[in-house]
Amino acid sequence: MARAARKTSSSGSTTTRKRSTKTDASKAQMPSVEELTKYYRDMLLIRRFEEKAGQLYGMGLIGGFCHLYIGQEAVVVGMQAAIEPGDSVITAYRDHGHMLACGMESRGVMAELTGRIGGYSRGKGGSMHMFSREKDFFGGHGIVGAQVSIGNGLGFRHKYEGTDRVSLTYMGDGATNQGQVYESFNMAALWKLPTIFIIENNKYGMGTSQARAAAGTSLAERGHGYGIPGVQVDGMDVLAVKAAGEKAVAHCRAGKGPYILEIATYRYRGHSMSDPAKYRSKDEVTKMRQEHDPIDLLKKVMLEQGADEDALKKVDREIKDIITDAADFAQQSPEPDPAELYTDVLVEA
């Protein structure tokens, strides 16, 4: 399922001026309806998956922490459209969307959430810890900021091996205040590593707004002192994300070193399932959902481009079936055998 994204927009038409806060997707070449449908499908898959995960959590079938990606779907789908097989992807703990976008099976992801043997980590990782070498997805990390150093190491590896692959290293706005992020910026710039630092700015690090946690206003400029180019992108517009991603990828593939994308997005749900989200107003959430929903926005573009409404409905039904199947699988898959307790601690030489 790994996808070879065709380059459909020339990077030249995308604005990347600092403080020109949004890349203008409308100027980029419009992808075909077929491609748009794929983005729609991928975003809807994540949306419906997360809704179902929330439901299963509410039923007690999913335990512990469960951080939902609802509202942020355009970020990962747009970025995925800009890369090719062999490029690596890593993120923190709000990771279900990244896994699905990388082509990992919804069954395996959902079964990991329910802690079953059919999960990607055989039930031993949980929501925050899933991986797929096959899909070049390197986790799934629970310590804020740690994945940034590791993602930089994946960039190091690409360069060490002499390929032109790139490392997509995702973090939230909260992670940008961790020291190791700047240690990573420094080494990435110093050694020209092909690391794209993607800051998914959903405006809140758990319950603390960016304004209360971060000095300065632009996270895209946090790499300025290291000479790392950074742009702000509208993360509710999948085409804007794709266009910005393609520009960043081209920069890295050309050996010019790292790149920072600050992608403005919004999570509709709380930080985790047990977060009532009292730190922001209902109006704020409602306004984002009604006026900036990434799936609604793409759907509108698609209809303008001549997409068939019935075809979209068909996609909706397909997704619903996939999610129902994943949820069934995740409940039917057995718990890990007690012997699994002791496996995978060490690789036996």
Binding site: S149, N152, F156, R157, H158, E183, N186
Partner: peptide, 21 residues
């Protein structure tokens, strides 16, 4: 030679190891 940045280069090395270096 790394900068004086233990947390950063240890994490970088972990990533390289995940990448089979």
């Amino acid at each position: 030679d790394t900068p004086i940045t233990e947390h950063g280069f240890a994490g970088l090395a972990v990533g390289a190891a995940f990448g089979k270096l």
